[in-house]
Design a protein around this nucleic acid. Sequence first.
DNA 1: TCAACACATGAACACTTGTTCATATGAAAG
DNA 2: CTTTCATATGAACAAGTGTTCATGTGTTGA
Lengths: 119, 119
Amino acid sequence: MEEKNELLCDEPAAHLDVVDRVRDVLPEDDTLYELADLFKMFGDSTRMKILFVLMESEMCVCDIAELLGISQSAISHQLRILKQAKLISSRREGKNIVCFLADDHVRSIIDQGLNHVLE
Amino acid sequence: MEEKNELLCDEPAAHLDVVDRVRDVLPEDDTLYELADLFKMFGDSTRMKILFVLMESEMCVCDIAELLGISQSAISHQLRILKQAKLISSRREGKNIVCFLADDHVRSIIDQGLNHVLE
DNA sequence: TCAACACATGAACACTTGTTCATATGAAAG
DNA sequence: CTTTCATATGAACAAGTGTTCATGTGTTGA
């Protein structure tokens, strides 16, 4: 009973060259986490809806809430998250806060997703 | 004290034209949910790592686990989720199950994300 | 200066999600 | 067949997430 790593298969040696090459090519861990965090923003239907709306037009918070039929509070919480992720930005206009996409990448990311979903 | 919808701002009428136009352009709810579910797949760092690996080369389960330093069980659970989402597929090869990307969209979606993360 | 309105925020809660641990399945080699 | 090895899976648990409810903040207009 020698000590052994209980996770490995017996001989990854068979594919050791491939494994090593891939290991070298993998991005930094930090990059992977950032990337996952980015996609997390698109992984909730409320945020997805908000982003879709803002792809069409900038809009104040109450209009977003009414248009989507979601409570103002829920929208506001999600807007905060999207702002922290720097995907949207906002400015005050009279009594209203007008939100808009802060980043053009949002469009291309969602478009790629749509391509897949729409087959 | 008349009944009123507590969620609306007083006069979305100001922007009623825009709101109505956007409402017409929004995709079906089903599509939005599908889209969010798709992006959810990319929103976990373990799955992100697996997909990155498979972007470089098809690979058996144990090699993925060893390469990433993640338990075989955890990998297997995530592989199941990715298969259900039809993002990866697999075939048996001797004792091993070899996994590979099932969909070229995976590459373009991740690439768009990378563009954003890498500024 | 005060009331009304648009929006933000904290706490609480239910729900979801990912991991571990233990064990099951199932092909393959002896 | 029986054992071994690669993978799958179920249960349990901890941690994360999104919504609601109640209330706070700051701006506007009377």
